[in-house]
Design a protein around this nucleic acid. Structure first.
Lengths: 141, 141
DNA sequence: GTAATAAAAGACAAAAAGGTCTTTTATTAT
DNA sequence: ATAATAAAAGACCTTTTTGTCTTTTATTAC
């Protein structure tokens, strides 16, 4: 479903939401170490997210990555779509060039249902709310 | 979710179920042309399926690929697991090394729920039955 | 204004996935 | 037996994805 890059990015954003804030910015090193992902590789992903204003950053001492108020309001879906492209959620699971409810493949409707459910999770809540849920329900990232 | 290889393989098996039989074996060329997939690449996938007894083949004139009675009884799931490995259906959607109902990631339950849905389609019916359904409901492969 | 810090940028490298082409082997129809 | 056929096998090649390392740029604390 999601590329490794995308998984790293999602987790990093959630990590930022859970452990950082505008006053306590986090460096790539910390995030990478905590999430167990390759540091320099993650750095590029964060840069990409930063360029797309899904996360914020400042350079220099006491600099790092964080989520500003606007960032916290966006959905994880944007992170996914920034990294894996917007088609992730609607390409045919059998790889057919055309596959729709009018012209479905054998897996179409189940796949659709599947994706709707996932979309609900990554889009239904703001990052902020998702982070809250992660804390409350003691989920792992 | 599924690799390209896996998609090609699934479609090819369904194509065999729909268009061939023990008396009318199909060559890679026909299958590849019809499904619009790279011929030699598909050939290897079919070889792999054949080795694993998910499809049958004979060499030489009037030879080709087909499904014997046993093959028709198996599920698409086996095809998937032969090509993409058995873990496809239970690796964490966020890529976490441990992610279970006891120790879930934020997407765990939704991912589980809908993977079950997909499993139902690829495992709930024999190839034969699935092919029947494709015919009846005029689905695309 | 200088040194230290941390992200940004960019050049490579390694691994995996996807794809092509050629040779070999088995089968069958003649 | 032989020629023709089609899968099996294997050697490569290309592209994409993933990962590493180095240099540059911006910021801040002193």
């Amino acid at each position: 479903m999601f590329s490794k890059s995308c998984k790293y990015a999602m987790r990093a954003v959630l990590y930022l939401a859970l452990n950082g804030n505008e006053e306590k910015k986090l460096g790539v090193k910390e995030i990478a170490d905590e999430l167990n992902v390759p540091k320099h590789f993650l750095a590029k992903l964060l840069q990409q997210l930063s360029k797309n204003q899904l996360i914020s950053s400042t350079k220099g001492p006491s600099g790092g990555f964080y989520l500003n108020d606007q960032n916290k309001e966006t959905s994880l879906r944007k992170v996914v779509e920034t990294i894996d492209g917007p088609e992730v959620f609607n390409t045919c699971i059998l790889g057919l060039p055309v596959c729709s409810s009018e012209n479905p493949c054998p897996l179409h409707f189940k796949a659709l249902e599947y994706r709707e459910g996932l979309l609900e999770v990554v889009e239904g809540k703001k990052i902020e709310e998702l982070a809250r849920r992660i804390k409350d329900e003691n989920l792992t990232i």
